[in-house]
C-alpha cells in the first residue's frame, strides 16, 4: 500500500492561503477593535467605564455584568428634555438625510448624464471646472457659506444642509458621468426616436440603468449626512433642530469633558445602526458601483 503524496505546489498553495487568511484576520481585528471597544464600554457601569477608559486596562473593559439598561438610559438623557431630545434629533436626522440623499442622487445623476450624453459648447471645460471644485477643502467655504445663508435668513433651519444637495456633488457627478459613458449611446438614441425628451430619457432609461452608481451614491451620502457633525453644529442652533450627531454632544459637560462615557457609547452605537443596516443591504450594488464607476468610459 502506497502512502498518499502531497505535491510541493499544493503545499505552497495552502501556505499562501494560510498567510492570506492570517493577514485578513489581523486586519479585521484592527478594524473591528474600536467597534468592540465601543460595545464593551456601552455595557459597563459608569464608574467602571470611567476607570477603564482612563487607565487603558483592556481587562477592565470586559463587561462582567452587562448593563443593558444603558441604552434606554442614554437615549432618554439625550438633549435637555427626557426622551424628547432623542426623538427630535432622530426625526431631524431622518428628514435631513432623506432629503439630501434624494436630492444628491437626482441632481448628480442628471448632471452626470448631461455631461456624458448631451453635446453642448464648453462641456469639457465645465466638467473640468466642476472636477476642480473637488480640490477645494470644505473648511475654506465654511465661513463664506455661513455668511451667505445667514444673509438669507436660513440659519437655524435645515435649508443650508439640504438645498446645496440639489446642485449635485462633484464626485458623484463624475461617477455618474463615467458610468453613463459606458452605456451604449444607441439606447439614448432609441429613446429619443421613441419620442422622449432628454428628461424622459434620463428618468426612464438612464436612472434605472445607473442603479449600481445610485446605490453607491445613496449609501455614501447617507453615511456622510447621518454622521455629519460640523454642518448641523454650524447652522442648527436650537435643541429642537439638532440632529443625532449634534445631540450626542449633550453628553459632554460644560468643560468639554465626558461625564458618562458608557452612555455616550451606547447612544453612539444606536446612531450607527442605520448606517450598518444600509451598507449590508446595499453591499452588492455598492461594490459593483465602485468597480463600474472607476472604469473609464
Amino acid at each position: 500500500m502506497t502512502s498518499p503524496t502531497v505535491s510541493s505546489g499544493a503545499v505552497g498553495g495552502t501556505m499562501a492561503k494560510l498567510f492570506a487568511y492570517a493577514a485578513l484576520v489581523i486586519t479585521t481585528c484592527i478594524m473591528v477593535f474600536p467597534l468592540v471597544w465601543m460595545i464593551c464600554v456601552s455595557l459597563l457601569t459608569a464608574d467602571r467605564a470611567q476607570s477603564a477608559t482612563v487607565s487603558g486596562d483592556l481587562v477592565r473593559l470586559i463587561p462582567m455584568e452587562p448593563q443593558w439598561g444603558n441604552f434606554s438610559e442614554a437615549l432618554s438623557q439625550m438633549g435637555s428634555v427626557r426622551w424628547q431630545g432623542f426623538l427630535d434629533a432622530l426625526a431631524n436626522s431622518v428628514v435631513v438625510t432623506t432629503l439630501v440623499v434624494v436630492a444628491t442622487v437626482l441632481s448628480s445623476s442628471l448632471v452626470g448624464f448631461a455631461m456624458a450624453r448631451i453635446r453642448f459648447r464648453g462641456r469639457e471645460g465645465l466638467f473640468l471646472l466642476m472636477l476642480a471644485t473637488m480640490m477645494l477643502p470644505g473648511q475654506v467655504t465654511m465661513i463664506p457659506l455661513f455668511i451667505l445663508f445667514r444673509s438669507v435668513g436660513w440659519v437655524d433651519t435645515i435649508l443650508p444642509l439640504v438645498i446645496p444637495a440639489f446642485f449635485g456633488n462633484a464626485f458623484f457627478i463624475f461617477m455618474y458621468r463615467q458610468f453613463v459613458a459606458q452605456i451604449p449611446e444607441a439606447l439614448v438614441e432609441a429613446a429619443k426616436i421613441d419620442g422622449w425628451s432628454w428628461l424622459g430619457v434620463w428618468w426612464h432609461v438612464m436612472l434605472p440603468l445607473c442603479r449600481p452608481v445610485t446605490a453607491m451614491c445613496a449609501v455614501f451620502t447617507f453615511i456622510y449626512v447621518w454622521n455629519d457633525f460640523m454642518g448641523p453644529l454650524i447652522y442648527l442652533h436650537s435643541d429642537e433642530q439638532a440632529t443625532l450627531a449634534v445631540a450626542l454632544n449633550s453628553f459632554r459637560n460644560q468643560y468639554g469633558g465626558i461625564n458618562k462615557v458608557n452612555l455616550l457609547m451606547a447612544a453612539s452605537l444606536i446612531t450607527m445602526i442605520p448606517c450598518i443596516i444600509l451598507f449590508l443591504a446595499a453591499q452588492r450594488q455598492f461594490i459593483e458601483g465602485l468597480g463600474k464607476g472607476a472604469v473609464k468610459g
Binding site: 451604449p184 444607441a186 438614441e189 432609441a190 429619443k192 426616436i193 425628451s197 432609461v205 434605472p208 440603468l209
Partner: peptide, 20 residues
C-alpha cells in the same frame, strides 16, 4: 426638427432594447 418630432422609428444594429 428633433428626432422625437419626425414620426419615424429606427431599428439599430445592436437592437438598443432597454435592458431593464
Amino acid at each position: 426638427v428633433p428626432p422625437q418630432d419626425r414620426d419615424i422609428a429606427m431599428v439599430f444594429q445592436n437592437y438598443a432594447l432597454y435592458p431593464h
